[in-house]
Amino acid sequence: MHEAAIVESALELILTKAEEHHLTKIRRITAKVGELSGALPEAMQFVFQNASHGTIAEGSDFIIEQVEATASCGSCGISFPIRFYHPVCPSCGGLDNQVLTGYELYIDTMEGD
């Protein structure tokens, strides 16, 4: 359950940003979470509802956008989705692949008053 540590860090980041922008109430937060990040959106939601209690982020919409895991093939150059973490090129079978997306774990936007 390292989502607890992740969401606590996220909340710290959000509250700092809110202070910088003189917000007194946070309405909406969007986060990008990659399929390979190791963080479960459901667990993050659960932790957020509890951790945000009593802060200006309480009751805000915490929207997690999952980012598909993709890689590009070093041999034939195509991009492809990674299924079950096997970055094997489906076109040429090449193993020399670079993961393009899937490790995202960041706060993208926030809205408030």
Binding site: S9, L13, L23, L105, Y106, I107, E111
Partner: peptide, 14 residues
Amino acid sequence: MSSIKVVTNILKVN
């Protein structure tokens, strides 16, 4: 209502 582009890694502190 303010909209803020944050784009900051959640594990920034770590």
